[in-house]
C-alpha cells in the first residue's frame, strides 16, 4: 500500500490478508491462491503489508477489550490515513470485525469476504472458471460461523463451488444448523476445556459421512481445524481440505 501511495496511485480494493493468511503456513497457500486470481484478472489491489495489524477479533472475544481497541484503532488510523474505501479478505473473522465492529470506532469501509467477491467476479464475467479439474467431484462445504450465522452469507461460497461444475453435496448439519469447527471465540489459541471430544473431531465426522473428495472451506481457522480432523481420521490421502480460492486457482491452473 505504502509503495502505491508513494507513486501517487490508489488501489481499487485493499486485500486484507489477516494474521493467519500472513503467518500460518496452510493459510499462506490460500493467500497466494487468492492473490494469483487477483493478479490474473489484473485487479488493482494493494495489501497493507507490515502496516496491517490483527483486527483484534480473538482479543475482543476472549474478553480483552483493551487489546482489541488498541489494534482496531491502530488499523483504522492506518486505513483512514490511506483513504481506504473497499476491503476484501479471505478470513470471516477479519471480515466480521472490519465490517460490523469498526464503524462504531470510526472506521467505515465497504468490506467483502472473498466468497462474495469471487461470486461477483464470476457473475459479471470477469472471472471465467475453466479447466474442469473438479468437474463432477464430490465436494461438501463447511459453513464458517462467522460467515454464515454471524453474517447470513450462505449462498456465495456455494455459488463459487457450483461454478466448478462440481457435485456439491450438503451434509445434514449445514447452513444455519452448521456446527462450529471449534476455533472461534479465541478457542484456536488454547486447548479445549475438559470434555468428551474435540469439537473439530465431531465436525469432521459429520463432514466425512457423505464421502466427499474435497471439503471446501472459506476460513483459515476452519481449514486448520478440519485438516487436523481429517488427519485424525487418517483420511488425508482421500479427502482434501481446500479453501474456495484454492479451488478456483487450481481449477484455472493459476
Amino acid at each position: 500500500m505504502s509503495d502505491l501511495v508513494a507513486e501517487g496511485k490508489t488501489p481499487d480494493v485493499v486485500f486484507w490478508v489477516g494474521c493467519a493468511g500472513s503467518f500460518d503456513q496452510r493459510a499462506q497457500r490460500v493467500t497466494i491462491a487468492f492473490t494469483k486470481i487477483l493478479n490474473q484478472l489484473n485487479i488493482n489491489f494493494a495489501v497493507l503489508g507490515t502496516e496491517e495489524a490483527c483486527t483484534g477479533d480473538p482479543a475482543r472475544r476472549a474478553g480483552n477489550e483493551f487489546v482489541f481497541q488498541m489494534l482496531a484503532q491502530q488499523n483504522i488510523a492506518t486505513m483512514n490515513n490511506y483513504g481506504v474505501k473497499k476491503i476484501v479478505t479471505t478470513c470471516p473473522h477479519c471480515f466480521n470485525t472490519l465490517k460490523n465492529e469498526y464503524p462504531a470506532l470510526g472506521g467505515s469501509y465497504e468490506v467483502l469476504h472473498h466468497a462474495t467477491y469471487l461470486q461477483q467476479l464470476i457473475n459479471d464475467g470477469q472471472l471465467k472458471v475453466e479447466g474442469g479439474a473438479f468437474k463432477g467431484k464430490r465436494i461438501t462445504y463447511h459453513d464458517s460461523c462467522y460467515l454464515g450465522r454471524a453474517n447470513d452469507i450462505y449462498e456465495a461460497p456455494r455459488a463459487v463451488i457450483e461454478s466448478l461444475d462440481a457435485d456439491l453435496i450438503e451434509i445434514n448439519k449445514c447452513r444455519t444448523n452448521g456446527l462450529c469447527c471449534g476455533a472461534g471465540g479465541a478457542q484456536m489459541f488454547k486447548e479445549d476445556e475438559p470434555g468428551d471430544k474435540r469439537i473439530n473431531v465431531e465436525r469432521t465426522e459429520q463432514l466425512i459421512e457423505v464421502y466427499p473428495e474435497v471439503i471446501a472451506v472459506a476460513c483459515p481457522f476452519c481449514n486448520t481445524m478440519i485438516t487436523d480432523g481429517v488427519k485424525g481420521e487418517n483420511k488425508q490421502d482421500d479427502i482434501k481440505v481446500l479453501d474456495i480460492a484454492e479451488l478456483i486457482a487450481q481449477n484455472n491452473q493459476y
Binding site: V17, C19, G21, S22, F23, D24, Q28, T31, I32, V47, G49, T50, E52, A53, C54, G56, P58, A59, A62, N64, V67, M70, L71, Q74, A186, M188, F189, K190
Partner: peptide, 25 residues
C-alpha cells in the same frame, strides 16, 4: 490466552512472529 494477548500487543498478531515478516508469503 495471556500469551496471545502479549503477542498481540507486541507483534500485532496472536503468534510470535515479527510484524516485519507479514509479507514473507
Amino acid at each position: 490466552w495471556n500469551n496471545i494477548f502479549a503477542n498481540l500487543e507486541n507483534n500485532q498478531a496472536p503468534w510470535q512472529f515479527s510484524p516485519e515478516d507479514r509479507l514473507k508469503w
